[in-house]
Amino acid sequence: MEIFKKNWTAAEADRWTVHDLLASLFGVVAFLLVTVGVIGAFLLQVWGFVCVAVALLLAWLMYRIIDPKLRAMSDAFEARQAEYLDDLEKTVRWEERSGT
C-alpha cells in the first residue's frame, strides 16, 4: 500500500486504512514529544530542541499521509450534506419516533 498516496476516490477514502492508523500514531508521538520538548527547549537543553524538531517532522509526515484522503472524503461528503441534513431531521424527530 502506498503511504503517500495522492489520488483517492471517494469510496476508497471512506474506508479505514493504514493511513488513518499512521496519522493517529504520528499525532500521538508528536503530542508527546512537543510536551516534553517545549519544557526542555525553554530551559535551553539540547534534548528539548531535538524533541520539538522530531515532533514537527512527525506532524508534517502526518499531514502528507492523511491530507489527500481527508480532501477526497470531505469533497464527496460535502456534496451530499444537504440531503443528509434533511434525513437527520426526520431520523431524530421525537413525534415520529414515538408514534404520537
Partner: peptide
Amino acid sequence: FVSLIRNSIWAV
C-alpha cells in the same frame, strides 16, 4: 497541539 505547548510553557 497548541494547548499542550501552552501547558509546557506554563510548566517552565
